[in-house]
Computed example of a mutant assay.
Amino acid sequence: MLGVEDAGRCVMVEYLVIGAGPAGLQMGRFLHRAGRDYVILEAAQQPAAFFRRFPRHRVLGTDDNSLFEGVPFSRYSKRSFPNADDLVRYLEDFARPLNIRYNTPVSDIAQFRARHVIIATGNRPHTPEIPGVELAETYATASTDPTEYAGKRVLIIGRGHSAFETADNIAATARVTHTVGRTVQRIVKDGNGFRATIDGSGELRYDKVIVCAGFRRDTSLDASHAHVLAGDSIKAIRHAARALHRTLEAEHHGVPWPHRKLRNRPDALAATIATRAHAIPQGLADVVVPQGQHALLYDEMPLRRKNGFVVTSTQVRHYRKDELLGVERRLHRKPLERFFSQQLAVPCIA
């Protein structure tokens, strides 16, 4: 069990979730609905601390920002590229019924005795290993006022969303804007400006250099006994959280993994898998287990399951007790029907 020191008393809970961003909130909602004893610890004084700072120009890259078991995000914004403040309001409302302790930073999970620890600390800006990169400004600190770049030559290091939103913001005022990826070899100070050595272009001079190299997951609290919950989008996060919660429920509370029955025929399996495969998030798999006249479909399981037909967004693998029997990468009905026919050793249905 977990011991959390709170004003001189020890509070015991079964599940400790670290972080009140989308991942921690989604896991908290699952635990709350299941009636489990849990607490979410958050270093900031409010939820969604990451999205209060990022993206810097306050425009999200997608409108798919809903979490499971809450109202849809579309009630907060119907834009294709919503304002980040709309997501903050959405996550604030999502967090209200949950047991969250704010202003509670965690520096070492070893200080807690927990039955289940879930690390949902999210991302932080990434700084590439380039000699002299410490001389540059960063995506987190550079000014968002376009007038500050008027008439200047600006080098932006990065090829992702943060780099291109920064470039778009200053393009109308900057004299020159170069956006490059991994080709920067060195940065040195040159008077009030900089000289950057770029593979294929030689040494070029800039007035400003901004590192916009994206984000990496915060691994500072990782431990072998803890569960890590992360994803590169809110869609990926919500599905990963559901898979982890279902795993914990099955392993520790005797709650069977949700499943449905299919007819154990090549045409029926092919029709279902052709529809499902492209909706399966990265890192998860549907698992189909034949049982006589029927087959059981377990959706979005962790990839470690290797029995039956394991379906990802790119392929179907057939296992028998961890032994690989066959692979099909054409996820269309006819190829899948032939594959299931061969693997089940029954003729195709015309």
Rank of each mutant, 00 (worst) to 15 (best):
Gly8Phe: 06
Ala20Phe: 00
Leu25Phe: 05
Gly28Met: 05
Ala34Gly: 04
Ala34His: 02
Ala44Thr: 05
Arg56Asp: 07
His57Glu: 15
Gly61Ala: 11
Thr62Cys: 03
Ser66Val: 08
Glu69Trp: 12
Ser74Arg: 15
Leu87Thr: 02
Tyr90His: 07
Glu92His: 06
Glu92Arg: 08
Tyr102Asp: 10
Ile109His: 07
Ala110Arg: 15
His126Glu: 04
Pro128Gln: 02
Glu129Lys: 11
Gly132Thr: 09
Ala136Phe: 10
Ala142Ser: 14
Ser143Phe: 09
Pro146Asp: 05
Gly151Phe: 05
Lys152Gly: 04
Val154Gly: 10
Ile157His: 07
Arg159Ser: 10
Ala163Gln: 10
Phe164Lys: 06
Ala167Trp: 05
Ala171Ile: 13
Ala171Tyr: 15
Thr173Leu: 09
Thr179Phe: 03
Gln185Met: 10
Ile187Cys: 11
Asn192Tyr: 11
Asn192Leu: 12
Ala196Lys: 15
Gly200Glu: 02
Gly200Ala: 08
Asp207Val: 10
Val209Asp: 00
Ile210Thr: 08
Cys212Ile: 02
Phe215Cys: 03
Asp218His: 13
Leu221Gln: 12
Ser224Asn: 11
His225Leu: 09
His227Asn: 04
Val228Asn: 12
Ala230Glu: 12
Asp232Tyr: 01
Arg242Met: 08
Glu249Ala: 15
Glu249Phe: 02
Glu251Ala: 13
Glu251Gln: 12
His253Met: 03
Trp257His: 04
Arg260Ser: 04
Arg260Cys: 01
Arg265His: 09
Leu269Val: 00
Ala270Tyr: 05
Ala271Ser: 07
Thr272Val: 12
Thr272Asp: 03
Pro281Thr: 04
Gly292Tyr: 06
Pro302Ala: 00
Leu303Ile: 08
Leu303Asn: 00
Lys306Pro: 03
Lys306Thr: 10
Gly308Arg: 01
Val311Ala: 01
Ser313His: 05
Thr314Met: 06
Val316Gln: 07
Val316Pro: 07
Arg317Cys: 08
Asp322Arg: 12
Glu323Ala: 14
Glu323Trp: 10
Leu331Met: 08
Arg333Tyr: 10
Arg338Gln: 08
Arg338Pro: 04
Arg338Cys: 04
Gln342Gly: 08
Ala350Gly: 13
